[in-house]
Design a protein around this nucleic acid. Sequence first.
RNA 1: GUGGGAUUAGCUCAGUUGGUUAGAGCACUGGUUUGUGGUGCCGGGGGUCACGGGUUCGAGCCCCGCAUCCCACCCCA
Length: 403
Amino acid sequence: MISSLRGMNDILSEDYERFTYFINTATKIAQKYGFHFIETPLLEETALFKRSVGESSDIVGKEMYQFVDKGENDVCLRPEGTAGVVRAFVQKKLDKAGGIHRYFYHGAMFRYERPQKGRLRQFHQFGVESFGVDSVYEDATMIMMVADILSACGIGYRLQLNSLGDSNCMPQYRDNLVSFIDSVEDQICEDCLRRKNTNPIRVLDCKNSTCQSLYVKAPKLINQLCGDCQEDFEKLKSLLDKNSIAYEIDTNLVRGLDYYSKTAFEFVSDDIGSQSAIAGGGRYDRLVEFLDGRPTPAVGFAMGIERLMELIKMPEVEREGYYIGAMDDEAVDMVLQLTQKKRKTDKVTCDYKAKNLKNHLKAADKANARFCCVIGENEMKSSTVWVKDLQEKTEYSLLFEEF
RNA sequence: GUGGGAUUAGCUCAGUUGGUUAGAGCACUGGUUUGUGGUGCCGGGGGUCACGGGUUCGAGCCCCGCAUCCCACCCCA
């Protein structure tokens, strides 16, 4: 038997119901917020991710499905969705067109990681990206959209919030932080030593308890934001307050992708194990120009669909459509004719074998049909079909032509 | 990539110190003597005990390897 590759799952039956229910729910909400669907390729030039996600990130450093194709192009299966959308935005010259452009997408992402619960090598994200709005109101709107989607699915969450500063205050802060790290260099873990050079901000969310006890004294960006960033962060908090969105400030929330600036947020669930982030996002005002576009403010988020699936509270399924069966072999032909007629307007299942009434009722019930329709000897004589409404428990007969 | 646990029917799981033909519940399927379901009764099919080696007279059970899943690290959606 050939099985699927490690960390790559099939989605079918009950899982598929939940999967599509989430996508449909999220799509409707994104459309209400004025977003439009965008589909971008699963395969992109490797350089795209190196320049956007960042070479210092684990995603690019060790988790990409990277290979050389038959045309000798260095390509990657996309590890996340934003880079491709930004690339498309620039390629279509929408940066030069000006105005506001809002997109949502959903699809498979690939990261070569060790699989566990909530962490797959091929997984699916639903995400949105907004281009051309520098107002922090848009940041707040993004967060509220995530909250709307989660609420619509009956999912509880905690929202964690931070500001990563911008090109005015971040470099200054980074220097301060590196000086601080230098002062405790002999006591921190190997990973942190590496991070000091590659991406010093990342030491802050190191899980090592010795490191954490040292970093308590580390300078905090939140205290060194420039006027602009500080103002936006305060405004964001007040907007969330006014719209009844609860949040926690997490000064160690850094996010693993290098392109974020200012607003960074993460929605987490306490009910799905250690892979608890169910949505994450933030502002990335510099990314469009990193990818050769005209500087364009942007903000977005992505949600991990597989992590959400087991949290979704599905609506109760109601009885729907018809089940049609025969009690005599002679009536089976008529079953198929009536089935095909009814399928023009309704969901219909039918049985090709003659059975007694009890078995048909059982089968109709199992198919979750609203109406059980049976043709037996009596019905054939009178050209009628016997119908029972399994929900209202009423029954009646209809002429074939009335059915 | 590192460490730990698990793997027996479609699913959830029993399986004694190594000893006949590996079990249960659910699910599936058939019947239930003249046409009433979701909730009665009786029957039936279905297992290379993940896979590959080894020890033994004999292995689902012990040993080694390997694959996958789960947990933690790591990372993040």
